[in-house]
């Protein structure tokens, strides 16, 4: 039984379609991510679920209730904004207590204190937003949304304004809290690594449509089209015609072929062959080498195509720019698009 259902939602601005027949379902307690480039419609979809944008057609259901046309305050959803949207005139305690006060809830002090403990902000209750770091402000925003015990938590690129180290820490924190409270969460990001790390399920969006959905492993290992392959994992995408010429074989058929950079093996041009039954060998020239710490990324120019090859960084095993090499493509790792 789905807890969140988005059914055929369409939305446009000035005759331009931003969301086109979007449908998706989420289970209770699931952590789903809307992943896509800027302008693909992911934030608009999130704001439509929150009620901050009206949809042109379609329906949105949460826990069986149609919320498509009710006001944001009645939807029982919590939202954390990219720029936090904390109230500058209120301290941490009052920011978190705001929603409870509006609802005239009971035990406000106890509930807020508990939430402050959950997001590890004890001692900061009397601080004002401008006295907190970006990460701390983000945790206040999260606590402010969570204290209302929303049915669905919406996160609109909440970590994008933070630096890398804090972002990694907050990703773990966010996931821990989400699991602890078992709250259904929809997270928006353009960072595929962030989406892979945090999500139970990813919905990849492009030009107002969901182009693929699935678990992080499914999305990464089985992209359905060129867009997903390139966006999600720097895949080498080649037309089948070029590939046939490169490997001198027509064993595979289809329109295009996608190969992950890390499954390619790179050896010296005169270094023999890796099991020819399982691999195709392609000769080429190293055009560029870059290092991202533990990974060496080669750009290898072959006759008719350039390949990205990722290898683990082993001491003394590195090809210089201009080196003649041979790359081996494992047959079972080739994905036909």
């Amino acid at each position: 039984m789905s807890y969140v259902t988005i059914d055929q939602v369409t939305k446009g601005y000035h005759h331009q379609v931003v969301l086109e027949n979007i449908s998706l379902t989420l289970k209770k307690g699931e952590f789903a991510t809307l992943l896509g480039q800027s302008g693909c419609g992911k934030s608009t979809l999130l704001r439509s679920i929150a009620g901050l944008e009206d949809v042109d057609s379609g329906s949105i259901f949460i826990d069986g209730k149609d919320i498509t046309h009710i006001s944001p305050r009645q939807r029982e959803v919590g939202m954390v904004f990219q720029s936090y949207a904390l109230f500058p005139n209120m301290n941490v305690f009052d920011n978190i207590a705001y929603g409870l006060k509006m609802k005239k809830a009971k035990n406000i002090k106890t509930r807020v204190t508990k939430m402050i403990e959950l997001v590890d902000l004890v001692g900061k209750e009397q601080s004002y937003p401008h006295q907190l770091s970006g990460g701390q402000q983000q945790r206040v925003a999260l606590a402010r949304a969570l204290v209302m015990e929303p049915k669905v938590l919406l996160l609109d690129e909440p970590l994008s304004a933070l630096d890398a180290k804090i972002r990694k820490n907050l990703q773990k924190e966010l996931r821990r809290i989400q699991k602890e409270l078992e709250i259904t969460t929809i997270f928006v990001t353009h960072d595929q690594e962030e989406a892979m790390t945090m999500s139970d399920r990813i919905f990849v969006m492009n030009k107002g449509k969901i182009v693929q959905s699935g678990s992080p492993v499914e999305i990464y290992t089985s992209p359905v089209n060129t867009f997903v392959a390139k966006f999600i994992g720097n895949y080498n995408v080649l037309s089948m015609e070029v590939f046939h010429k490169l490997v001198h074989s027509t064993e595979l058929n289809g329109k295009e072929i996608a190969i992950r950079p890390e499954v390619l093996q790179i050896v010296s041009a005169n270094e023999g062959h890796l099991g020819l039954h399982d691999n195709w060998g392609i000769k080429g020239l190293v055009k560029d080498v870059s290092m991202t710490g533990n990974v060496l990324r080669y750009e290898v120019e072959t006759e008719g195509a350039a390949f990205l090859v990722d290898n683990l960084h082993h001491k003394g095993k590195m090809f210089e720019q201009g080196a003649q090499v041979q790359i081996f493509v494992p047959k079972k790792e080739c994905i036909i698009l």
Partner: peptide, 20 residues
């Protein structure tokens, strides 16, 4: 300067009316 649009969005999602 205070990004009033987003503050109002945040307040409404927390249960406030437009006037509140």
């Amino acid at each position: 300067t205070v990004n009033a649009v987003q503050l109002v969005d945040a307040a409404e999602l927390l249960g406030a009316t437009k006037f509140q």
